[in-house]
């Protein structure tokens, strides 16, 4: 009797949690629907600019900015993360391994406002001394890559730890040098972990709001080069939500649906990679 009660209670709680994602999607959709009907999806990509209070709703420059920020961050962070994970697993002397793990843990726990603060006060002036105005796509990419670096490193490192020892033994038996072993045996063996880490990092990068908003200058425009200011889709929501009404508010909810769709896609890709990982 108590057992049945217990199972029902647990089931009900889990149902609440599992349905949360659907509830969230329904709420976002509900807030966007009026605007979608009135304005139509097409105008979000074809209007002459973004001035929602005057009925112009083009969010394309912000989508471009978000994608560039994400791609740039992955391009900077992924090689650094893979090399660092390899370093910690195969190269680091043992006292350094512990220090390295602490560093990555602290970087992973650091809140995004602190990254943003550092970017705003330290990094942006450094970039500005080199190329005006400083607050730019470049600053965003550098801060984001620092933020997703620990995510990718942790996933790759756990892939390296889970890798069967016999691969390494076989490489040693063939007298391969360490670099050759890492590049030709180890990295191919953990390619699924690398892909999983990169998709997780990409999801974090495209969803990041505060740090990006603090360092990218927030001007709505497709950037001409790395040193132009940009406004990400997430920053746009955070900057305008406070005073948005009517279709303006609806447009921001539509951007959030878009973000949700991208993240769901990335998580599903990640799931696919992890569940189809060949069992060594």
């Amino acid at each position: 009797m108590t057992d049945r009660l217990l199972t029902w209670t647990l089931g009900a709680a889990t149902l609440v949690v599992v349905s949360l994602i659907a509830v969230i999607a329904v709420f976002l959709l509900n807030e966007s629907l009026d605007t979608l009907n009135r304005v139509g999806l097409g105008r979000f990509f074809s209007d002459s600019g973004w001035s929602p209070t005057m009925g112009r709703f083009n969010i394309l420059p912000m989508i471009v900015a978000s994608v560039l920020l994400m791609a740039g961050a992955v391009i900077v962070a992924a090689p650094l993360a893979v090399l660092t994970a390899v370093f910690l697993r195969f190269y680091a002397p043992s006292p350094v391994v512990d220090t390295g793990r602490r560093i990555i843990e602290v970087l992973a726990a650091m809140p995004s406002v602190v990254y943003g603060l550092w970017g705003l006060v330290v990094l942006v002036p450094v970039i500005a001394a080199w190329q005006q105005p400083g607050a730019s796509l470049m600053a965003g990419i550098l801060v984001l890559s620092l933020m997703i670096f620990p995510t990718i490193t942790i996933v790759v490192h756990s892939g390296l730890t889970a890798m069967p020892q016999r691969y390494i033994e076989a490489s040693l038996a063939l007298a391969l040098n360490r670099a050759y072993m890492v590049r030709r045996v180890v990295l191919p063996a953990i390619r699924a972990s690398i892909a999983a880490g990169v998709t997780l990092g990409a999801a974090r990068a495209i969803g990041e709001t505060m740090a990006v908003m603090m360092v990218t200058g927030n001007i709505v425009a497709v950037p001409g080069d790395l040193f132009d200011p940009v406004r990400a889709l997430t920053s746009n929501i955070a900057l305008e939500m406070a005073y948005a009404l009517g279709d303006h508010r609806g447009a921001l909810y539509i951007s959030s649906l878009l973000l949700l769709a991208v993240v769901i896609l990335l998580v599903l890709i990640n799931e696919f990679i992890v569940s189809n990982k060949c069992e060594y």
Binding site: L28, G207, V263, V267, N270, E271
Partner: peptide, 22 residues
Amino acid sequence: VIVSFDVLAGMPSIVFGLFGNA
């Protein structure tokens, strides 16, 4: 269930903010 948790874990915080506001 696990996939739905992963989506929840990966969802941008600003999206949670909009949901919470609504």
